[in-house]
């Protein structure tokens, strides 16, 4: 199952939209409602604050094989609280995702191996417990996919991924 999802993620039909929206109550609801109402398929939606406290930034990833990204863009743009939308898919962009992964450890040897894997992916172990460790990994989705793939054999207990955030270069 995980592998299927990883395969799907390699699909180049993903479009990344960056929307600047007014930081007002209910705006996330308006965006989510639009997606549901127009039957747009979104893969991930990440929201956060920006340098301007009155503005929030949304990074929306769309499966363009099922949804016309240009229509999403135009419909988003119609929302009164949306200040700007940009499809950054084909622009030089830094794309990141953060994931926390809890992996089962049954003995000290495993713990050592997992530490090595974490190092190879330039990620960190942020929590160590008797029967598990937690890894924090940052990077493009493929990197997160890869480490998940490698860790699968040890038994992944829990995963959380933030979804993609993006910023154009320069």
């Amino acid at each position: 199952m995980l592998i299927d999802r990883i395969e799907a993620r390699k699909n180049p039909t993903k479009h990344t939209l960056v929307a600047l929206v007014e930081n007002k109550p209910g705006v996330l609801n308006r965006v989510a409602s639009l997606m549901r109402r127009r039957n747009f398929n979104i893969e991930s939606l990440a929201v956060g604050t920006t340098e301007d406290p009155t503005v929030s930034r949304m990074t929306i990833v769309i499966d363009a094989s099922r949804t016309n990204a240009a229509l999403v863009e135009r419909n988003l743009y119609k929302l009164v609280n949306v200040i700007d939308v940009q499809d950054v898919t084909n622009l030089p962009t830094v794309v990141r995702e953060l994931a926390l992964i809890k992996v089962r450890v049954s003995d000290a040897q495993h713990r050592g191996e997992i530490k090595q894997i974490a190092d190879m992916f330039q990620s960190r172990i942020v929590d160590v417990a008797k029967e598990s460790v937690m890894i924090e990994v940052t990077g493009e989705e493929q990197k997160v996919d890869s480490i998940l793939n490698v860790l699968q054999d040890y038994g992944i207990l829990e995963v959380v991924r933030t979804g993609r955030i993006a910023m154009t270069r320069g």
């Binding site: 007014e22 743009y77 009164v80 949306v82 200040i83 939308v85």
Partner: peptide, 11 residues
């Protein structure tokens, strides 16, 4: 004057 809303919004 509104920040996000423009009557005609060619994208």
């Amino acid at each position: 004057q509104m920040r996000g809303y423009r009557a005609i919004k060619p994208h």
